[in-house]
Amino acid sequence: MTTVHGASLAVVAPGLHTTIQDRGRFGHQDVGMPVSGPLDDVGLRLANALVGNPPGMAALEILMQGPTLEVAAESVRVALAGSGAGIEVLGEEARVVPSWRSITLRRGQSFRIRALADSACAYLAVEGGFAIEPCLGSLSTYVRGGIGGLHGGALRPGDNLPLRFDAATERDEVMLPKTPDLAPNRTIRVVLGPQQDYFTDAAVDTLLSSDYRVSQNADRMGFRLDGPILAHRDGYNIVSDGIATGAIQVPGSGQPILLLADHGTAGGYPKIATVISADLPVIGRRRPGDGIRFAAVTVAEAEAIRQQEEAALQTLIRRLRPVSEDAGIDLAALYSQNLISGVVSGAE
């Protein structure tokens, strides 16, 4: 491992696809630069709140399989949110620290993020954030463009993530008052359009009444959905126009594609509907094979839902409370993780 000066987290193992994400790179979509940012903006904001950061600070976005990291600083306060996977502290004081709380680790300690079983993504925030220069005003990593993050890509073994703080501040560890609902079965609400008039009425009915599934063809750019095809009324080409995150575009095959954080800024396929902003974090957490059902709402309803969700999130963050001593080891989390990893049977 290369020698670095200053505090850092050393990447022992990078995980499946771990990237640095803040809330996104805005202001350059007019020249074709995607926004990027988190798949689950709520998870990012909760992780930051738990370590006392502003909500938009860059954190690690972890997909499916988490990284193993080693503390190369006097100490660092971290928190995992977005999934109940928990943090496994390795070495002499090995234990599982549950998600949704902060924990301070000391120099030389290693920890690994457990496999995600309840979400596609999780967020590991560090108190004070990373000491990395932003690119076009953002630390978000846009891997296809080789832009942002540490070196424009996902974490690699041997990377060192420089930290802004050399040591954690003196304060109590905090936890959420209750585990947030990840809404794995929630019906995903959409606003029809902007081009639903390019589709037959039957296609719109099919979208809103069928069981879809996230296909294996899923990444930060979007999901191809398995399920009934959607028939276009006439052609399937439109003169390219701008794309919002959550748009469901339908190419000639009729197989819908749900566009996520790294989607292109403009495109030439008609978009039958767009996922509402309150449900974008929910859809971002779905994994290949997970089911999706859609329901239509009006824009005004979408706006009201978003206000409610935002108020609920702010309330949750206001109610962060000190971690009680006996919460250091969460037996329930340990138990569920063991069941998932198959280390012990339920009978033991």
Binding site: V191, V299, E303
Partner: peptide
């Protein structure tokens, strides 16, 4: 004026 969800 065509809505693209509630963000565009």
């Amino acid at each position: 004026f065509l809505p693209s969800g509630d963000t565009a």
